[in-house]
């Protein structure tokens, strides 16, 4: 009598698990490895690389069309760390200075635009015009006007990262619950405290979504500047390598750039997670 319900209960417990878990039968070590965060991404990445290598080899694709991953890795190590360091540092320095400058200008500007409708009306169209002009087209002009050195590159990086920051910050500052603004006014608190204690913290999620967009744009800005005129930097390195038909080397530069962007993006995300954990979207 009792065996029937027991059987029913245990089977209903087991069945959905077997349906949803593809590695149910595997050893505990493999199971943990397969379900670790990022494993699916890594797995598909490895699959693509292996497929790429095989395709390039089987069909004997010339390396100037599509170098094999192994030749890219080989050229990566043949460049040497000191040379990599010079190029990475050159790009990173411009990207970081431009990004920092952008933040330092954009956030106060967004606050000013919030306080002054006049400024907002006059600056917004100007910002849209700047944003609508392709930075790649402006870059050579800026290089000519500002001459050699980091200055023109930093300006180019600034131009490309600036817009999302201003717009997002302005949106965030305005998105504060009106009740809290009324509370602030009913307390007759100083106006600057309304900004620092209410509006800016409420804008943090908006600012960070712009910071995440802008950090990758900063790398793009630095590379665009290097394409126009420079003697160092990963963008310069790629251009130099392609002009010499050293495609595996150019690909290696590309991978370094992608890795750089990715690491910088993760750093911004980490900063948000550790400094403003409440600003992240809720996970259920």
């Amino acid at each position: 009598m009792t065996s029937v319900p027991t059987y029913a209960a245990s089977s209903s417990k087991r069945q959905p698990k077997a349906m949803t878990d593809p590695v149910a039968g595997a050893s505990p070590f493999f199971r943990r490895l397969a379900t670790a965060p990022g494993m699916a991404t890594l797995g598909s990445l490895i699959a693509v690389v292996v497929l790429w290598e095989l395709t390039a080899r089987i069909f004997a694709i010339p390396s100037y069309l599509l170098p094999t991953p192994s030749s890219v890795i080989q050229s990566f190590s043949s460049i040497g760390y000191d040379r990599w360091f010079v190029h990475v540092w050159a790009t990173l320095r411009v990207a970081m200075i431009g990004y920092a400058l952008s933040i330092v200008i954009a956030i106060p500007l967004a606050i000013l635009m919030l306080r002054s409708p006049f400024l907002s009306r006059t600056l917004y169209p100007l910002l849209v015009v700047v944003q609508s002009t392709p930075v790649v087209a402006v870059a050579p002009i800026i290089i000519v006007s500002l001459g050699a050195g980091d200055a023109p590159r930093v300006v180019i990086t600034c131009l490309i990262t600036f817009f999302p920051l201003v717009v997002s910050t302005a949106t965030g500052l305005a998105a504060t619950p009106p009740e809290l603004i009324e509370l602030s006014r009913s307390l007759r608190a100083p106006a600057w405290r309304e900004i620092t204690q209410i509006r800016l913290p409420f804008a943090v999620p908006y600012i960070f979504s712009a910071l995440k967009i802008s950090i990758t744009l900063a790398v793009i800005g630095a590379v665009v500047a290097e394409f126009c005129a420079s003697e160092a930097g990963v963008g310069y390195f790629i251009q130099f390598s392609t002009s010499m038909f050293r495609l595996p080397q150019a690909w290696a530069g590309l991978i370094v750039l992608a890795a750089m962007s990715l690491v910088l993006f993760q750093l911004v995300l980490f900063a948000q997670k550790s400094l403003f954990p409440w600003s992240l979207p809720k996970k259920d």
């Binding site: 009740e179 809290l180 509370l183 913290p201 409440w278």
Partner: peptide
């Protein structure tokens, strides 16, 4: 100073 307000929504500071 002698007036307090309770709003329809709690509107607390989430941080």
């Amino acid at each position: 100073d002698d007036i307090g307000i309770v709003f329809q929504k709690p509107t607390l500071l989430p941080w």
